[in-house]
Nucleic acid binder design. Structure first.
Length: 323
DNA sequence: ATGCAGGACAGAT
DNA sequence: ATCTGTCCTGCA
């Protein structure tokens, strides 16, 4: 299937948005692959691109659908899910016009053309990925998410490889926290180092208990589908109650997991960039920058922070602000 | 090798 | 309301 939308798939995949780890890149087909469920049928999505104005979607399913009506219905469901995940129905050219009207923001367009929100396949994955990202590097939290999928996620074998879904909260809730705990439950005693199917070994560090608690919360009490029905303010107040979720992580969850585009996730880099652009490089607190950004950018806030971050990264501004 | 980067939290002001 | 020290790991 062809999609005629302005998007840079590679950039979108590799921009470190905390909705999920980047999809597996298949060298043979030059595609980013991931498994999703459509009507409970596992579908391997394969997304490839050689032109910024379009991309192709190929997919694999376990069996053959011989009913052409069913086939059409199935494909339309896949299409709408792909459009949702890559935020294709967002009017990005309108956003570019907005950026170009602000001299501080205008330079970002050239560096980020085609960068779109990478929305969560699974909101729970976005919650855990965002919690894992705090006080952490992109490389480390993405490895954590890949490990969690491999160890606790449902496995699906396709001709082009094995893929895993992110586990539901009920599964993650009963995961071992440490090597020691995993070892205790094992009859044949091996060396402690050989126990790697525990949360700590996924590189979560002290965030293990946050992940555990969030899993328990969404298994026993909360339903993350409720967030889709709330206003941004309601959702923010609710999500920030989770241990390990502060303002920045809350905004990441709401933006990348639930598509609240008015969120303005403010980390130290956004703080530095915004201070440089709008406050004459004064030291303005993260809290104030967040409020300023939400106020100034409104419904564009989420996209603006995404663009500012990558603009700073690629233009050398980040390097400059480091000192 | 020691030190630092990265958000949230608990405790103190 | 805002500040400080601490948490864990990977990388200079």
């Amino acid at each position: 299937m062809e999609f005629n939308d302005l998007i840079n798939i590679k950039l979108t995949q590799e921009s470190g948005q905390t909705s999920q780890a980047s999809w597996k890149f298949d060298e043979n087909t030059s595609s980013y692959n991931n498994v999703i469920l459509i009507d409970n049928i596992p579908v391997l999505l394969k997304v490839s691109q050689d032109n910024i104005n379009s991309f192709s979607l190929d997919y694999e399913i376990p069996g053959v659908i011989d009913d052409s009506m069913l086939n059409k219905y199935f494909e339309s469901k896949i299409t709408s899910e792909v459009r949702r995940i890559f935020d294709l129905d967002y009017d990005i050219n309108k956003f570019y016009k907005y950026l170009e009207n602000d001299e501080k923001l205008a330079p970002s367009v050239d560096f980020c053309k085609g960068l779109r929100l990478f929305e969560a396949v699974d909101p729970f994955e976005a919650i855990i990925a965002s919690i894992s990202s705090s006080n952490n590097s992109i490389a480390r939290w993405t490895n954590t998410i890949k490990d969690i999928k491999r160890i606790w996620g449902d496995e699906f074998r396709f001709p082009s490889g094995t893929y895993y879904k992110f586990p539901p909260s009920e599964v993650l809730m009963s995961a071992y926290e440490t090597k020691e705990e995993e070892s205790e439950a094992d009859d044949e005693q091996r060396k402690l180092e050989s126990y790697t199917n525990n949360l700590k070994s996924c590189g979560l560090g002290y965030r293990v208990k946050y992940v555990k608690e969030a899993s328990e919360l969404f298994s026993l009490e909360a339903d993350f589908n409720e967030f889709f029905k709330m206003s941004y303010d309601e959702a923010f107040d609710e999500i920030i109650k989770i241990k390990g979720v502060g303002p920045k992580v809350a905004d990441c969850i709401l933006l990348y997991g639930f598509n609240f585009k008015e969120a303005f996730p403010t980390d130290v880099w956004i703080k530095r960039i915004m201070s440089y652009l709008y406050f004459n490089n004064e030291d303005v607190s993260v809290k104030r920058i967040r409020e300023f950004g939400m106020d100034k950018f409104g419904d564009y806030a989420g996209y603006v922070q995404l663009y500012l971050f990558h603009y700073a990264r690629k233009s050398g501004l980040m390097y400059k602000l480091k000192k």
